[in-house]
Design a protein around this nucleic acid. Structure first.
Lengths: 227, 227
DNA sequence: TACTCGTGATAGTATTACTATCATTATGAA
DNA sequence: TTCATAATGATAGTAATACTATCACGAGTA
């Protein structure tokens, strides 16, 4: 049981939400509200009333709700990368390393529940990311946001995993494409299992947890491809 | 060169847009506008002024812009399924059949340009689907919409391809999960190549077309997995 | 003491996502 | 031809959204 903190760069916000109680409240309550309402129906006004503050105060931290979503997902990817670092740094064999990485990406690692993250409800956060993260880039402003460097978190994680893929099989020509595909698929398959079950064999009705099933699917997938 | 028409069920609209000039105009102009503005900035008011009509008239065809997007993507999947039918019905070998299906899904088939689709600009439509289709289900109303049967088109296509996967290797345990993954990946990889190129080896700078590169990536992918 | 910093309170604006009503025009059946 | 009906246009209105702006207040700091 350890308490760490994930540091997010200045470019993601106007005022650091980790620097004040109000800021922390904005982030944690926005995760709850996005979970309840979905990103579209989530508004700063509703958030303000939920934390007994005002719209104006929230705008001092984030320009708009889209930037807040980018912040939240960046935090999530930074956390995934941190988890990967602590649980793989001691593993020498590349394929074991990759397996553990995939486990963490699929939320199927035993280590995940070990970490206490003050002010962040990880299970809620994961739900929000599964349902909403794609909206960070599925927007007409994608190039603008990308130019500001705001997708660094996702790209960095993708690259880190791709390096290990490359280690295992330097001849495989699509390491990044493969990793970005499984990063997306790990969310989509969980989402489909819950909402559009005919799109996947992964099912809530099976004994194994969703996360474990997704892991099995993706792990097989990756290793059949690169070996 | 043939002219066919794709028929969409009543549940997708209030008034059949294929039944009038105004309706056709609504659909084809909405595709142009969504392409220019993106789904978020696209509004019925802008659409009305673009076709010299009124908001009220558009609402007579579609309840809201989300339903219009569902209609458009459903039309797209129905078209993909039609293309698959005509270009694979004569193929007996399952693996050849699957290859052709993947080609069409990736928009890399030679047959695609053969078909003349009156009132539908297929290349624009494809762009809209790549950027916006996920938003049909990434919404809090996903279960509601699913209960109305509005995801039948996507599910049907997924199942059709999954059956062929199952034919090739009945022991492979995840045919639907695999197919839904490649359906998504075929869009995502094209999107990444254009907007977030560090996430994929598929690149606009290579000689081969994006579509062809995506096809190569995904075809290898599928056959290594199921054989 | 004065100053500024973070926050709250309040107000205002353009736009969105509808809903409602009524007028006009085109179509086609009697 | 006439009458009825359906399709569209014109206009208005509403609640909510996504902001922007201004001022006031209290706490801590120099």
């Amino acid at each position: 049981m350890s308490a760490i903190s994930i540091v997010i760069e200045k470019k993601y916000y106007n005022k650091d939400p980790q620097s004040s109680d109000l800021g922390k409240n904005i982030v944690s309550t926005s995760i709850e509200l996005m979970n309840q309402l979905g990103f579209e129906l989530f508004t700063f006004k509703k958030l303000a009333s939920a934390i007994d503050s005002t719209e104006a105060s929230i705008y001092r931290y984030f320009d708009n709700k889209h930037k807040l979503l980018v912040y939240i997902t960046t935090w999530y990817w930074a956390w995934v990368e941190y988890m990967i670092d602590v649980s793989t740094h001691h593993i020498k064999a590349s394929d074991e390393k990759l397996k553990e990485m995939i486990k963490i990406i699929c939320h199927a690692s035993e280590h995940i529940s070990d970490i206490d993250m003050p002010g962040m409800q990880l299970s809620l956060l994961r739900k929000v990311v599964v349902s909403e993260a794609d909206k960070t880039y599925l927007t007409k402003q994608v190039d603008e946001i990308n130019n500001l460097g705001l997708f660094k978190g996702f790209k960095g994680l993708c690259h880190k995993v791709a390096l290990v893929v490359n280690d295992i099989n330097p001849a495989y020509p699509y390491p990044h494409a493969l990793v970005s595909t499984i990063l997306e698929a790990s969310h989509q398959q969980a989402f489909f299992a819950q909402h559009l079950p005919s799109l996947t064999e992964i099912s809530m009705k099976k004994k194994e947890s969703l996360e474990r099933q997704v892991y099995t699917f993706i792990e097989e997938f990756v290793f059949k491809l690169i070996r």
